[in-house]
Amino acid sequence: MGEVSLITALRTVVAREITLAMRRRTDVFTTLFFFIIAVTLFPLGVGPDIEVLRTIAPGVIWVAALLASMLALSRLFSSDFQDGTLEQLLLAPHPLSLLVLGKVFAHWLLTGVPLVVLSPLLGMQLGLDAQAIGLLMGTLLLGTPILSLIGAVGAALTLGVRGGGVLISLLVLPLYVPVLIFGAGAVDAQAKAVEFGAWLYLLGAFLVMTIVFAPFAAAAALRISVE
């Protein structure tokens, strides 16, 4: 009975997030367009030399993905915090860390997955070949959930804090460093014809670790912030 109701609760959390996002579709598109615009700025700044662009492409796309998913974080808990639904979530008879995991999963579906889907287009813009694009998508698929999970901790910590939007970047970006290195590193290694599998394993291992630890940290942070 307990497990059944927990699964119902998790499904409810995910479905609720998606319903809400569908009623305010612009939010999803803002993140996506930020991603596109940020990547487009690089050729304008660096110059249209396709060789140069190809070498910096993995890094550029990854940094843009990092920033895009960070921008979306402020919405993760703040509207729930303002209308009191977060309090009700905290008072649900289920482990908060699991409910947070559900919320982060929905958030990733709405902000991370679109980035993955769109990345081939940007990869082509920057002159990556098909193989590199495939690998880029793979790393983004493994890496963007980590961004959402670590980001959830930052979002929970800065909830209701003045200047929270800027503060969150200060807290979260240094913690994103390994994801950036593993993700962009894999694509880079492949371009240099070096073994790239290790980078993917590392990314996968980091993902497993954040799935295990981040929800607890985020739940603890939420309890502190709601006080």
Binding site: S5, A9, T85, A92
Partner: peptide, 27 residues
């Protein structure tokens, strides 16, 4: 069952949806 200063309702959802989500969350 706690009802605080904040109503704990999602503006974009209907009354029925809000209550149904609450009921499912509380098991």
């Amino acid at each position: 069952c706690y009802i605080g200063h904040l109503n704990g309702l999602k503006d974009d959802l209907t009354a029925v949806e809000n209550l149904s989500i609450h009921a499912r969350l509380t098991g």
